[in-house]
Amino acid sequence: MHELYKQIADAVVAMQKDDVKRLAEQALNEGLPPEEAIEKGLAAGMTRVGELFASKEYFVPELLVCSRAMNAGFDILKSKVVEGKIISKGTVVIGVVDGDYHDIGKNIVKLMLEAAGFRLVDLGRNVTAQKFTSAVITEKPDIAALSTLMTTTMDSMADIVLALQRENSDVKIMVGGAPVNEDFAKSIDAHFYGDNAREAVIGAHELLGITI
């Protein structure tokens, strides 16, 4: 692997936005394939960030700053990516459930899934059951990911899962968020519960039968 990729990944982990930008430009100048720089540099860095997050060495502030660094590099590299060079592992529609506007958790999961090679359709915050089901119809995702931070809106999550199942779609449903746990996920018939973003990435692979 090219030394630059490792440096890009390190800079992402070290939260150094300017370094990431400089290194991304350097990679392009040296004629390295941008999609490779994204995968082996930025995404690899974010995977490590995800691991640090899962092992509770990094927390939300660090993750946000890392992703800011990653995005800076991504902006530079993606313009040079040749169409079709990046193959998506699958599509995920993601949103914070009706009644809840807290999207830190959702954004982190989105970030990590994107970094891992999934195509993300972000429905944003306060997403109703109706909005979720119509997105499932139009986007034909493989996975629907639901998040909530508040105990007060956990029932919305149950409602949305029910609505999706009523649509009889094959979409796999994953849920997460501070008040949610395995038991609750089971009780509302979600297919997967992730305790954190890293688990969400593993779960998305598992749900689609992809080996990491």
Binding site: T151, M154, P179, V180, N181, D183, F184, S187, I188
Partner: peptide, 12 residues
């Protein structure tokens, strides 16, 4: 007590 346990949907 986990608040979700008080929801109608919870089987806790």
């Amino acid at each position: 007590l986990p608040p979700h346990g008080l929801l109608p949907s919870s089987n806790l």
